[in-house]
Amino acid sequence: MSSSNTDFVLAVEGLTVSFDGFKAVNDLSFYVDKNEIRVIVGPNGAGKTTVLDLICGRTKATEGSIKFRNKELTKMKEHQIVRAGVGRKFQTPSIYGDLTVFENLEISFPRGRSVFGALTFKRDAEVLQRVDEISRMIFLDELLHTRGDLLSHGQKQWLEIGMLLIQDPELLMLDEPVAGMSVSERRKTAELLRTITKDRSVIVIEHDMQFVAEIADKVTVLHQGKILAEGTAEHVKQDPKVIEVYLGH
């Protein structure tokens, strides 16, 4: 595989993963710029979530390379990738139900990540201040001491986004952040996304084309593990191939 260094934040080249012969992602290449918001769309089974899994190390690639700030990610462990500056939100809200909102955020605070560090971790002013700041951003500052279990679906989604924000990642990956949200929650989320994407790159998987058009710099359409089209939301919507396989359904 080519291993040229680039100016992109993320450079995916020739990425392939096969599960017992089935190629869920097939020779995929794409590049994400600094401060770009990239949306990945595609029908079910197109390999969208698998691409995120590959980038964050949850699934190991069969072939190809993923470079984040010119660092090869495919050989790294999950926690190393996170520490390098890649944050990932899961499709279903993944928060700790037995812990409070405060504790959820505190655990995500990027300090004391070793065993010893966790044993000697202190809630100092910096932690309190950062948790406070993030909780305001994600509309949960009133609920700091509520258990995660008791939050609504939308609030859980925000909390998980907050847990990523507190790590201040350079690349943020969101898997269907507005799925299952009410209209007003959706609006608030769009607003939230706009504020958090100011100085970082973001990859979003989303189905809702209206929402996509609202936030995307560039859209990548996946179909059967390959790129079908790439460009602005307007451009992609007009592509006859895209209309056939995706919008046509």
């Binding site: 462990k77 999950e78 944050g87 993944s94 928060i95 700790y96 139900g97 037995d98 655990i107 990540r113």
Partner: peptide, 14 residues
Amino acid sequence: REMEDRVRFSGYDV
């Protein structure tokens, strides 16, 4: 115990 993947993807070596 609850959400192992989330801990892993918060930068911890579980």
